[in-house]
Every structure is written in C-alpha cells, then in structure tokens.
Amino acid sequence: MGVLALQGDFREHLRLFSSLGVEALPVRMPAELARVRALVIPGGESTAISLLLESSGLLDPLQARLRDGMPTFGTCAGMIMLASEVLGGRPDQHHLAAIDISVRRNAFGRQRDSFETDLRVAGLGAPLHAVFIRAPLVERTGPRVQVLASVAVPGGTQKPVVCRQGPVLVTSFHPELAGDTRLHELFLGLLPGNERSDTQTLDNERTEDVRPL
C-alpha cells in the first residue's frame, strides 16, 4: 500500500494502515510509486498536490497506473484529484479522471462551516463518524459510479460524498481523522485477491467490475 506523501494528512493514513497490520509506504517519487500495488491520495490542498505531482515526476506514471486499474482511494483533496471534472478549481489544476464524477471544491463554504457528523455508508452497517473540512461535494456522477453515501444540501437535495467506480473509492470527508477504519478496510477489499471480504455487499448491489476511464 502506498500513500501519496507530497502534502497533507498522509501520516494519518499511514498510521491507520499500520494499525490494521498493513504495510504502507509514503510515495513522493516515481520509484516509490512503482513499488506499491495500491495508492491513497490523502487530504490536503489539491492545488498544491497538483503542482507537486508534476514537479515530482509522478503525474505521468500515476496516470498510467490508474489506466491500468490500480486500486486508489482519495479522501477530500484526493477525491478532487481523482475526479473527471473539478468545479471551482484552478484552470491549470491537474485532475486524474479516474472516476467519472464532477466535484465542486469548498462546496460547504469556508472553515467556519466545516463540521463533523454521523453518516450512513452503504455496506458498512452502523453510521460512520465523518469529518468534513472545507470539503468538496459531488455534483454529477457518471453511469458507472456507485454512490455509497450522500448528505443533504440546502434546498433539500442529496449530494454524494462517498463514491466508487471499479477499484477507485473517493470520499469528501476524512475517514483518516476520526479513527474509524471501516472505509480503509473496504478499500483493502478492492485489492486483487481481497475482493471477497468487505466488498461483498457492494458487489451484490451491482457491479461488472469496470475499468476506470
């Protein structure tokens, strides 16, 4: 398991995997990316991570790995990085288009509007405690995207905050902050060879395992 360690809360992800007994490595350079089977893109500032991906020489190899179907988990800024479209971002911001969603940055407002809440996530049973920090929201999902959790937004509509497309899982919030490991375990279940464990419920809902875009 690798955790992209250019900027943001990569340490929390590394510790969480370590608590699950999974070996996880920080990834800052292409040689490190080549050593991992799966990757987490953590929370942080997506504009900074985007620039650093390019200057570290990781952008092209990462795009190639995503095309090859590397299991990837993006939280908050990681969700923005993996989306096929970013609203409210910088025009020159890279996004990896590994999951067919349109994401709006800072969709809940500024830091004073950041919040924690309990959230029901499909397949996880008891609600998950979720911390939303200047969080993004999903404005559009493509036909191959499964929505695993949503929140209400002003106007009464529901917008997705946890989505999956094949081996790519994204969340608007920070499961790495609240100490609940279930989403990380769900992600581990997406790795080849682990499919039967935690993702059974999800796969029963509907999935021909589709390749990312």
Partner: peptide, 24 residues
C-alpha cells in the same frame, strides 16, 4: 440519507484543517 446533526467548530474540525496543511 441517514445523516444526523452537524457539529461545527469542534476541536477535531479545528485541528483537522491544520492537519490538512501539513507538509505545506
């Protein structure tokens, strides 16, 4: 949608932003 009350301004929410700024 199954979500409950939202709580703002908690210690975790405040520290959470600092955590996102790490390495920057």
């Amino acid at each position: 949608g199954g979500q409950s009350e939202r709580v703002t301004g908690t210690g975790m929410v405040k520290r959470g932003l600092a955590t996102q700024l790490r390495g920057g």
